[in-house]
Simulated assay, not measured.
Amino acid sequence: MEITEINENAALVVVDVQKGFEEEFWGRRDNPDAEGNIAALIDRWQESGRPVVFVRHDSPEGSRSPLRRGHVGNEFKDFVAERRGKGAGPELLVTKSVNSAFYGEPDLDAWLKGAGVEQIVIVGIQTNMCNETTARMGGNLGYDVVFPIDAMHTFDLAGPFGWTRTAEELTRATAVSLHGGGFARVVTTEEVLRGAAAR
């Protein structure tokens, strides 16, 4: 089993793990193990005193999005909500209305740099949307981005020209683009857990 080297102050960035993603609005998803893997990573981070960033997507009130402010879907899923504030290390809540967690409030890049963080581990929802966008921007900003592909999920999607792709196909495309393009190291949850325990 490979072990991914995890820095002592690596930040876990938990993206948009919100109740609204459980609604039928999105369609069919992949990776039923995502929530369990996300929970395991949060627990390891909190036990080790590493920083954890919780990101929440706030769609505008009045929109059709299940993530809209004032709707129950805007809330974190229970397993995330019950873990907030339980860690031994620093914690940050970032709210955003676009794909990248680096375009939220407060300024994630400034917070990370202020804490001397050079490595981020991205988990959450959706693999090919907010997770991928945050990873690409993180790579552009100079962070060592670790992307445990089994600690996230996405949904089937229709695009132009009648093209469609399953959630699994989109996940593989994201993994190849990020890893092959040098934006992030795509790994497994187990590799990250082993790396975090090695410190």
Rank of each mutant, 00 (worst) to 15 (best):
N99M: 14
L12S: 02
G142N: 02
Q119R: 03
G195R: 06
S100R: 10
V145I: 05
P90Q: 11
A11V: 04
G89P: 05
N74S: 10
A151V: 03
E132Y: 05
F147W: 00
P148H: 07
P51V: 11
H71W: 13
G73H: 08
D33V: 09
A40K: 15
L178N: 02
E61K: 14
D107P: 04
S100G: 04
E35A: 14
N131K: 04
A81I: 03
R69E: 14
T134L: 08
T188F: 02
R194Y: 03
V14N: 05
T166Y: 08
R56F: 00
T134Y: 05
K113H: 08
Y103E: 12
T188Y: 03
K86E: 11
N9L: 09
T154I: 09
G139M: 07
V55T: 02
Q18E: 06
A175P: 00
A81Q: 14
R83M: 06
C130V: 09
A198K: 14
K113D: 08
A173E: 10
F155M: 07
S59T: 03
S100W: 10
E61H: 12
F21R: 06
V98Q: 14
I149N: 01
N128D: 15
A40R: 15
W163I: 12
S177E: 12
F54R: 03
T133N: 09
R165G: 02
P160Q: 15
F102V: 07
D43A: 14
A110P: 02
M152R: 06
E132H: 09
P148L: 08
